[in-house]
Amino acid sequence: MTKHVLTGGLIAGLVAGLFAVLLQLTFVVPLLLEGELYESGDRVHFGTGGPESIAGAPAIDGEMMRHAGTLAMSLVSWIGFALLLVVGFALAARAGHSVDARKGAIWGLAGFIAVALAPAMGLAPELPGTIAAELGARQIWWSATVVLTAGGLAAFAFGKGPVAVFAGAVAIALPHIVGAPTLDTYFGVSPPELSAHFAARVLAVSAAIWVFLGAVAGWLWARPAPT
C-alpha cells in the first residue's frame, strides 16, 4: 500500500509538474517578467505624464537557468501535492470510497479550491514588486486557509448529516472572517490591468494543473498494484 501511494504520488507529481511548467512558462511567466520591468523601474506606469505605459512582455528565452530552477521547484512542489492527494485516496479507500480518473479529477478540483482559490480570496496572486504584509504572517494565514478549506471540503464530501455540512462551512468561512494580513497602504507600481491579468491566469492555470493531477493520480490509483 505504501509503495502504491509513493509510486502513484511520484509519477503523478512528475507528470503534473511538467504540465505545470509548460502552462506557466506559456501563460504566467511572461506576465511575471513584464511585472519585473515595473518593479525595476525600467517601465513606469503614469511615467509619461499620462495614465499609460507600453504593454508587452519581454522575450522568455533569455534566462534558461532561471526557467530550469522553475522546472525543478515545480516538480518538487507538485510531487508534494500529489503525495498528499494520493494519501487522501488511500484514506478514502479505508472508508470504502473508490477513486478512478474521473473521481480523481473532482479531487483535483477540490485541491485547486483549497490550495489556490481560497487563499487567493485573502492573498491575491502577486506580481513581483508587490509590497504586502509581513511574509511569516501571510504564510501562516495561507497555510491555515489551505488546511481549513481542505478539511471543510472533506466534511462536505464524506461527512454525514447537517452537522458535518455546518462544520465544513464554518471551517471554509473562518479564515475569511478572520481576514488575511494586509497593509493599510497600496504600493503597486504595475498597471492594474497587468496585475489583474496575472492573478486571473495564475488561478486558471492552477485549476487546469490540479484537475490534470487529480485525473492522472486517480487513473494510476485505480490500476492494480504490482505484486
Binding site: 504566467v28 530552477g69 522553475t70 487563499p119 492573498l123 513581483p128 495564475v202
Partner: peptide, 8 residues
C-alpha cells in the same frame, strides 16, 4: 521565485 509567484 518564479514558481512561487506562479503558484500564488
Amino acid at each position: 521565485h518564479d514558481q512561487r509567484h506562479s503558484m500564488a
